[in-house]
């Protein structure tokens, strides 16, 4: 059975789609069969971040309505063979999905893939609930600021009460905390919540800390998930996330302010 992972947050703009793309691609690079599903019906973004926006013919809603088969709608990634993307519909709205049909699609995908990564829309309405309903695991993407932490807390409550696992009384969804846009410098200056602060409030296991990085915007615009940028801090941090998702213990990096070397100070680097 495939592991169904939802990337969620409550709040918008915290890095759900960036993280979904990086994690999906990272797992595929490790040789796993992965499908990325864009649940943000009406605000299709994942295809842009993945760089496959020109190859979208059929979408998730077409499959749900029986207008296309899964194989017609799935887009194979050009970089990694074992990765596919199921894009959202741009012309429909979130009511186009229903639990029963989403369940059927996920079941079918579950037989074809090892990981199903669901990119959730923001908010706590039907669309976000649909994305998390069938999840086995949740990656709660959070920025180190109070409103994002509050919204993540809300979503954690939903995961524990509104998911299929909760409704059937099964083992609860495994929760992971992914802290994005983290700036050790601003934490040191007291402008940003620290990792410890967020962990204390949410009290769920930490999966990764992605440092604030110019590389993320560049990668998004280029349609190349940032995990491919192996030189960047953000890319390295996402690679650590993949290791941890696969059960490895990896030390956390980029949590403290980097000390500049004497040379780079001299040359103003």
């Amino acid at each position: 059975m495939a592991r169904i992972i939802v990337v969620t947050s409550g709040k918008g703009g915290v890095g759900k789609t960036t993280s979904s793309a990086a994690i999906g691609l990272g797992l595929a690079l490790k040789g796993h069969k992965v499908v990325l599903i864009d649940f943000d019906i009406g605000l299709r973004n994942l295809d842009l971040i993945m760089g496959c926006e020109r190859r979208v013919v059929y979408d998730f809603v077409n499959v749900i309505n029986g207008e296309a088969t899964l194989n017609q709608a799935l887009i194979k990634d050009k970089r990694v063979k074992s990765l596919s993307i199921l894009p959202a519909s741009q012309t429909r709205d979130k009511d186009a999905l229903n639990k029963e049909n989403v369940g059927k699609v996920l079941e079918e995908l579950g037989e074809m893939y090892d990981f199903i990564v669901c990119d959730s829309p923001a908010g706590i309405e039907a669309g976000a609930m649909m994305a998390l309903y069938y999840a086995d695991e949740a990656i709660v993407t959070t920025n180190p600021e109070v409103s994002s932490v509050r919204d993540s807390d809300r979503i954690l409550g939903m995961l524990a009460s509104r998911s299929r696992r909760a409704e059937l009384g099964l083992e609860p969804i495994k929760e992971h905390l992914l802290l994005t846009r983290y700036s050790p410098k601003r934490v040191a200056e007291g402008e940003m919540l620290s990792v410890e602060d967020v962990e204390d409030i949410l009290s769920i296991p930490l999966l990764g800390v992605i440092p604030e990085s110019q590389a993320v915007l560049k990668a998004s615009n280029a349609g190349e998930p940032v995990i491919l940028d192996t030189e960047s801090d953000a890319g390295k941090a996402y690679q650590d996330v993949i290791e941890r998702l696969l059960g490895e213990t990896v030390e956390f990096r980029f949590l403290t302010v980097e000390k500049k070397s004497i040379l780079s100070r001299l040359f103003g680097g």
Binding site: R150, D153, R154, L156, G157, S203
Partner: peptide
Amino acid sequence: RGQIRSGQ
């Protein structure tokens, strides 16, 4: 048992 989350 367990945390009571925002909104609950």
